[in-house]
């Protein structure tokens, strides 16, 4: 009987310490989870702002002058030809100043 009571006492004490330990660990983990969640929120918020900023920086209104500054422009029929010979013929025609239609198309 005494052994039983003693055993129960030891068991109780052990489980009390164990529970205390677990509860302490849980609180630590909770803190870490909260910190992680805060970090996630901050990251999501940063992503939202960065996404908006990237879209703002990449808006065509801003890109267009930069592209034009590089000498770029929309593709025209002048950059395409049915065959290499046709392209060569056009170049020769233009250097001769005979292709009025071609030059007018730039307008």
């Amino acid at each position: 009987m005494r052994m039983l009571i003693l055993g129960a006492l030891v068991l109780t004490l052990a489980s009390a310490f164990l529970l205390y330990g677990i509860s302490y660990d849980t609180r630590l983990l909770e803190d870490r989870v909260q910190a992680q969640e805060r970090a996630i929120d901050a990251a999501r918020s940063d992503i939202a702002v960065l996404k908006a900023e990237r879209a703002h920086l990449g808006r065509p209104e801003r890109i267009e002058p930069l592209a034009r500054g590089q000498g770029l422009q929309p593709a025209t029929d002048q950059q395409l030809a049915a065959s290499p010979t046709a392209a060569l013929a056009r170049v020769r025609g233009m250097s001769g100043g005979a292709s009025a239609a071609d030059q007018k198309s730039g307008e």
């Binding site: 489980s15 009390a16 529970l19 677990i22 509860s23 849980t26």
Partner: peptide, 18 residues
């Protein structure tokens, strides 16, 4: 008495009681 102690410990260990 032991059950009460155990219950209290479990209660404290449960999350969401900050």
């Amino acid at each position: 008495a032991f059950a009460a102690v155990a219950g209290q410990l479990v209660r404290l260990a449960l999350p969401g009681r900050s």
